[in-house]
């Protein structure tokens, strides 16, 4: 019971962090058809900017300023990079974002070095919120959940109740028609790209100190974010939300379960002597592979994802 509750809370925290990253990526993809390989780089930059601002001012200033800075950077990348590459087709766009992700890592290494930086959870958010049986639940994880839920509610309200949100929703299906109605779609593209990258930056601010802030952090999370978008369904925010929580919770549970299929078989009374290596691997060992297996299964059995409307 203790394991289940704590794993569930940890899984939800991780899942919401994944959603913060994948929501921006799926919005950018569905509206602009740009598969932004550099998306996780904005997450990394968010963490580094937050580290820098926290040192100069405070974590709270970083929480506000770092996503804004990342968003501005995102807008500049869209306006002066992606929009120009777009004229040469999707392959050029893809290569541009691919190159940008390497550039971001090199710049980060030049400025902050190759080792992890000392970006810490602020002292006001350190400590235990409650103890469940024998496991303590940190305040900071509850804070991460609160920020994520706040962001989720904000994003939902923005897209549902504001005029610009409706224009964005409409442009998800027919950007050409939205433009023909007199709305400046290229400007909305910039806004969406800035918003999406700012969300990735926010994830970096709250995730960088909970996990680790190092040049490899974008590579660690980038592929999983793509998995979330594919599993949820390309272009579906609800799908991204469901897939984020699913992968977050499943992976957290698996990490904590040191059982193999052979162990399970023994539990139910089957004694397997010559099981293949795969069956002897524990769920903990399987955990890192699980999101990719899920993606392959989804691509085979339901290519449009859990809630996606389009297959390509």
């Amino acid at each position: 019971m203790e394991f289940a509750l704590i794993s569930l809370l940890n899984g939800v925290t991780y899942g919401l962090l994944l959603f913060m990253l994948s929501s921006g990526l799926t919005l950018i993809f569905s509206m602009m058809s740009v598969l932004n390989f550099a998306h996780a780089s904005f997450y990394m930059l968010g963490a580094y900017f937050a580290y820098q601002i926290s040192g100069a001012a405070s974590f709270w200033a970083a929480l506000l300023l770092a996503p804004l800075l990342v968003g501005v950077l995102g807008a500049l990348v869209e306006r002066f990079g992606i929009r120009k590459a777009h004229r040469f087709g999707h392959v050029a766009e893809l290569l541009f974002t691919f190159g940008l992700s390497f550039l971001a890592i090199e710049v980060v290494q030049l400025v902050w070095g190759k080792a992890a930086v000392d970006y810490r959870v602020p002292s006001t958010l350190q400590g235990t919120l409650f103890t469940l049986y024998s496991t303590s639940y940190p305040i900071y994880k509850a804070f991460m959940i609160a920020v994520s839920v706040f962001m989720l509610a904000g994003l939902y309200s923005f897209l549902t109740y504001t005029r610009i949100g409706l224009i964005i929703q409409a442009a998800l299906s027919r950007p050409d028609m939205v433009q023909a109605l007199g709305h400046d779609v290229p400007r909305i593209f910039t806004l969406v790209f800035a918003g999406g990258t700012a969300l990735a930056g926010l994830a970096g601010v709250i995730g960088g100190n909970a996990l680790v802030t190092e040049p490899g952090m974008a590579d660690a999370v980038g592929p999983i974010v793509f998995v979330v978008v594919v599993v949820g369904g390309l272009g579906s925010l609800t799908g991204a939300f469901v897939a984020s929580l699913l992968i977050g919770i499943l992976q957290t549970f698996m990490v904590g379960m040191n059982y193999s299929f052979v162990d399970f078989a023994r539990e139910i009374g089957l004694d397997i002597h010559s099981a293949p290596l795969l069956a002897r691997l524990s769920l903990t060992q399987f955990a890192p592979v699980m999101p990719y297996l899920l993606m392959v299964a989804i691509l085979i059995f339901r290519p449009r994802g859990l809630m996606g409307a389009r297959e390509t």
Binding site: I167, S173, M177, V178
Partner: peptide
């Protein structure tokens, strides 16, 4: 080219260039 996920009212509102 209607916007399929938006309501009839929302589709109409999006036709307005300057509210």
């Amino acid at each position: 080219a209607i916007f399929p996920d938006l309501t009839v009212r929302q589709n109409l509102v999006l036709g307005i260039k300057d509210p």
